[in-house]
Simulated assay, not measured.
Amino acid sequence: MSFRVPTVAALGAVLAALGACATPPAAQSGFLSNYSALTPEPATLASIRQNRDEATLANVDRLALEPAVFVGGAEEGLSAEEAGWVLAEVDRQVCYELSERFTVLEPSQPGAQATVRMAVTGLSLTNPAGSGLSAVANWFIPGPIGVRAPGSTGGLAAEGELVLVPDGRQAAAITWARNAKVVGFDTPSLSRLGDALQLAEPLGDAVGDAFAPEGREVREIADPDPCARFGPRTRPAGFLARMATGLYDPGMSAAPRETSPDE
Rank of each mutant, 00 (worst) to 15 (best):
A129Q: 12
K181W: 08
A64L: 10
A228I: 09
N127C: 05
V8D: 15
G122I: 01
D225R: 07
M1I: 07
P213N: 14
A172N: 05
G130S: 07
L15Y: 11
R117V: 06
A83F: 13
P107N: 12
T175H: 03
E41A: 11
A58L: 12
P6A: 11
A158M: 07
P232W: 06
A88E: 02
A135D: 06
A22D: 07
L87Q: 07
T234F: 10
M252P: 00
D195F: 06
G160H: 02
K181R: 13
A212M: 11
V165C: 13
E82W: 03
V14S: 05
S36K: 12
A58D: 13
T187K: 00
D249T: 09
N127M: 12
E89D: 09
P6I: 04
S29H: 04
Q50M: 14
T39K: 13
I145M: 13
V8P: 03
S108Q: 10
L240G: 15
R169F: 08
P166V: 15
D262T: 14
S131E: 08
N138M: 02
N59E: 14
A10L: 09
S134P: 00
P188K: 00
L190R: 01
V69K: 03
S36I: 06
E54S: 15
E201K: 10
G184W: 02
L18P: 04
V14K: 04
S33T: 15
E66I: 09
E89K: 08
V94D: 00
V104I: 10
Q28C: 02
G194S: 14
E97C: 04
G130W: 05
R229K: 14
A255D: 08
R62C: 11
L87K: 06
S124E: 06
G204F: 00
V165D: 03
A241C: 10
S124V: 14
R178L: 12
T39P: 11
P6W: 10
L63Y: 06
R192N: 14
L63R: 00
F70S: 01
A80E: 07
S47H: 03
V207C: 02
R219P: 03
R62D: 01
P144G: 11
N51H: 15
R169T: 04
I221G: 02
P142W: 14
Q170H: 06
R117F: 02
V163I: 15
G231D: 04
P150R: 10
A22F: 13
